[in-house]
Design a protein around this nucleic acid. Sequence first.
DNA 1: CATCCTTGATTGACCAGTCAATCGGTCCTT
DNA 2: AAGGACCGATTGACTGGTCAATCAAGGATG
Lengths: 199, 199
Amino acid sequence: MAKAPPADKRRQILDAAVAVFARQGFHATRVSDIADEAGVAYGLVYHYFRSKDDVLNELFVERWSLLLAAIEEADRAGGPHRERLAAVATFIVDSYRYDPELMKVIIVEVTRAANSFGQTHLVEIRRAYESIAKIVADGQESGAFRNDVAPLFASMTFYGAVEQLLSGWIFNVIPTSDAGYDEAKDLLVTTICDGLEPR
Amino acid sequence: MAKAPPADKRRQILDAAVAVFARQGFHATRVSDIADEAGVAYGLVYHYFRSKDDVLNELFVERWSLLLAAIEEADRAGGPHRERLAAVATFIVDSYRYDPELMKVIIVEVTRAANSFGQTHLVEIRRAYESIAKIVADGQESGAFRNDVAPLFASMTFYGAVEQLLSGWIFNVIPTSDAGYDEAKDLLVTTICDGLEPR
DNA sequence: CATCCTTGATTGACCAGTCAATCGGTCCTT
DNA sequence: AAGGACCGATTGACTGGTCAATCAAGGATG
C-alpha cells in the first residue's frame, strides 16, 4: 500500500481543474478556484504541479496520447480505409460523449488556442494530422481514395470537420441527442469519404 | 480643409492592434503595446475605445459583416449551388490572402475563442453558419445535393474544413504558396461538394 | 523521529483603466 | 488682423485590484 490511501489528491485536483476550466475557461480561472473545487488548500496545487499551466498541460497530454494511439491503432487494424477514418471519428465523438468537459477543455483551451497552448503542443497536434494523413495516403495507394488530393490536406479537412462538429455541440449551435452523436458521425464520415472517393 | 490632417489616429490604432494581436495574441498584449505600435500615447486608446475588448470587437464586427454580406450575396447571385459554396470559400481564402494578420486575429481570438469573445459574438457567428446552411438547403431542394444530410450540419462541416485550412496556413502546418491558395480552395470545394452530391 | 503531505497567509509583479494637465486648431469679436 | 475664448485631441504618471507563486509551519504516517 504505497500510495492509495491519501485519496489521490493529485487526481482530485486534475478532475476539479477540468470542471472549472470547462465552466469558466482557463484564463478566467484562478488557482484558488481549482483548489476550492477540489476541496483542497491553495498551496497543495503547487505541491503536485509546477504551475497553473502545468495542470492544463497534464490534462492535454494524458488525453491526446490516447487519441494518437487510437488513430495509429485504427490504421494498424487494417480493413477498408473508409472504416479506418470512421474509427477515428468514432473515437473522438465517443471521447466527447464520455467526458464532454474534458474534451471541451482540450479543444477550446489547447487545440484551438493556437496562440497560447496550441503553440506549446503543436508537435503533438501535428502528429495527429499526420497519422490521419497516412491513412488517406494508404487509401490512395490502394485506389480507395482519389489521388489528386494531398493527404495532409484531406486530413486537415477531415479533422477540421470533426472538431467543428464537437464545437457545435459544445456551444449549443447544434442540438445534441444520444442518437444524434452516432448519426452525426456517420453522416460526416459518409460525406467526407464520398468526397474522397474516385468519381 | 476640414479634417484630413489628424491622420485618423483611430484607424492607426486599429491597424496597430491587428499587428500586435496577431503577433502576441490578445491576452498577451498590453494596451501599451498597441499604443507603442501605433506611435500614440497610452491614453489615446481610451479616447477612441471604451476598453481593450472594445478594440477587438470593432475589428471583428467590421470584418465579419463583410463575410456575412458576401455569403448572402453568393446565394442571391444564383447559379449552380456548388458555385455558390465555392464563392464563399473564395471570399474567405482571399480575405486571408489579402490580410492574413486580420484573419488570424479574427479566427484565433474570436471565432475559435468560443469561451471569451466567441461567446459574445455567437449570434453573428451562427448567422454565418445559417446562411451557408441556406445555400445547402436550396441545393437539396433543387436536387443538386443529397437530402439526407441536415443543412446546418453540412454547413458546419464545410465551414469547419475551411477554417481548419486557414489555421493550417496560419500556424505553418500546411505550406503556403500563392498558387496553393486557389488550388487548396478548389480541392476543398470539390471534395466537400462531391460528398454532398447524390450518388 | 524522519519523511512526506497539507495548509493558507504573504509577497511581489503586473496591468487595465483613470484623470488632470497640455496642446493646438477654429472661429468669434472688435 | 489681432486678441482671446473655447473645445476636442493628446499625453503619460498613477492607482487599485488581481493573482500566480512562495514559504514556513503544522499534521499524518510508518
